[in-house]
């Protein structure tokens, strides 16, 4: 499979704090890459370098290259809205905007100039179906998105990022606050979605990484310790620290 994103010697600093240390990693198209590691290992910061969301925090410094389809996304003149439409993101805490379900989904496309009502309605139905939420909300699309349950809100957030028709979807511990049933619904959705999208999933749940990830990267204190296929990492990891982490001996 071809490489969708190529990361070369990526370093990230917040002020003087060295958050990511010389990361080299290739993310293949139409795979789910899981990123695992204990808290403060730089997983979320890494994810946020991929759509340049770290840039909104002041005092952030980045070196190295991130190539999306061969183009350096940190090159001068890259439009951030354009990048963020191509690389969608779903956060750990689902935060629908304080608008209706419908408006949450069409928010991005509208800003991008989609105005046809038919097209927007079609997008809402399609994305809600992809996020396995359509059946639960189809009769109340115009009620507030913040009134949904946690699991539904998270699927709404997935749907709204799909509405931008991105190529890559970043998920930052999307199931951290959810019950097992909601979690399995989201995993089911991810499994379907990878046919069309490239997915990077940060998770604290190693079992989830094993279930849905094609490849797994293990981060520790800003270093990427090990990268490999799920089967390999979860059965015969090369590094002692990886083994310690996935068997629950630390972290």
């Amino acid at each position: 499979m071809e490489d969708k994103i190529i990361i070369k010697d990526l370093n990230l600093y917040f002020d003087t704090h060295h958050v990511l240390k010389s990361i080299n990693l290739n993310i293949k198209a139409n795979e789910i890459l899981s990123i695992i590691g204990p808290a403060n290992s730089g997983k979320t910061s890494f994810l946020r370098t991929l759509n340049r969301l770290n840039d909104i925090t002041s005092a952030v410094k980045i070196s190295g290259e991130i190539l999306l389809d061969g183009m350096d996304i940190y090159k001068k003149g890259i439009s951030l809205p354009w990048l963020r439409r191509k690389v969608g993101m779903v956060f750990a805490l689902p935060v629908p905007l304080p608008r209706s379900i419908f408006e949450n989904i069409v928010y991005g496309p509208r800003l991008n100039g989609v105005t046809s009502k038919d097209r927007l309605e079609e997008l809402v139905e399609k994305t809600l179906k992809s996020a396995f939420l359509w059946d639960e909300v189809k009769d109340r699309l115009h009620t507030s998105g913040t009134k949904l349950s946690g699991g539904q809100q998270q699927r709404l957030c997935i749907a709204r990022s799909l509405a931008l028709e991105p190529e890559v979807i970043l998920l930052d511990e999307p199931c951290s606050g959810l019950d097992p049933l909601s979690t399995s619904k989201i995993e089911e959705a991810l499994y379907e979605l990878k046919k069309q999208y490239t997915i990077v999933l940060v998770t604290n749940n190693t079992k989830q990484a094993a279930r849905v990830g094609d490849n797994v990267a293990f981060f520790l204190m800003g270093d990427m310790i090990e990268y490999g296929s799920s089967e390999h990492i979860f059965t015969v990891p090369n590094d002692k620290r990886t083994e310690d982490y996935i068997t629950g001996r630390f972290g």
């Binding site: 969301l53 909104i56 809205p81 439409r85 905007l97 304080p98 928010y107 991005g108 800003l111 991008n112």
Partner: peptide, 14 residues
Amino acid sequence: PHSYREGSLSLGAT
């Protein structure tokens, strides 16, 4: 909430 800003920005808003 800061998450509103991040949510909106990550949906391609300026």
